[in-house]
Amino acid sequence: MKPAPFTHHLPGTVDEAASLLAAHAGEDARILAGGQSLVPTMAFRLARPAHLIDVNRVSDLGTVAVGEDAIGIGALARHGDFHRPVEDGPLGALLSAVVRHIGHYPIRMRGTFCGSLAHADPASEWCLVAATLDARLTARSAGGEREIAAGSFFEWAMVTALAEDELLLRADLPRLAADARWGFCEFARRAGDFALAMALAVYRVEEGAIVEPRVGVGGVEACPRRIPEGEAVLAGRAPGPALFREAGAAVADAVDAVSDVHASALYRGELAGVMVERALADAAR
């Protein structure tokens, strides 16, 4: 359980980190931020990066910055930074409810939001949040910055749109309207374990009808994503248990669930529907 040897780089600025990444991209270089997924993988020697570019001392990588329209989450924002709401609106409350499902307390002291996105585990809560809320992600390389929409960032399990010489600099989450309702539900076999399925639901109610529904599912397919079939059921209709069940059923039908040692595709798909139904009910609380 000892990692293979590697070269440890400690850049002090984003420019230095990007240059190091450019110089070593072809030699299996990895960014080390919180390390709560990468280091165990290295302990098992499933990953044997030749270079670790440790960004923990990079002075110009931010943490959480609350702007007028969005929350900017810099590459050094740790999960634990969301334990207390980072803003007074629904988004702050949503993030502080969801964060309690990520790993365990000590893991949350080190692991980072952007690191979770770049790692892109199918069962990552932050990846689900980013996909459902249409986060805007900023990638940085020696050549400059580019923005990637969350909807096209997650390409497959553990595969993202980041090029090998790019690091994830920041994620911007659009703030939610003051009257936005949100609900989250996940099912895992043990506290802190990977979710077999989870759902995030956000909507507003105008004159008794649901508007701007967002329904995202994670841990079910290779990547978290919004499920338009579920959202279509909700739009324009009055919230209630029967409608939530119908939306859940539509999601269960729409997803292409993965099968693994923990759950069959059939089970996972049905579980996704139940998670959506419960997340919607949670939002209506």
């Binding site: 390390g35 709560q36 165990p40 302990a43 893991i107 080190r110």
Partner: peptide, 19 residues
């Protein structure tokens, strides 16, 4: 292996000493 790093409980097996 939990220890306190600058006051925060962390897994000391998931950090490198060089950090």
């Amino acid at each position: 292996c939990t220890i306190l790093l600058d006051g925060a409980p962390v897994r000391s097996c998931l950090m490198f000493a060089a950090q």
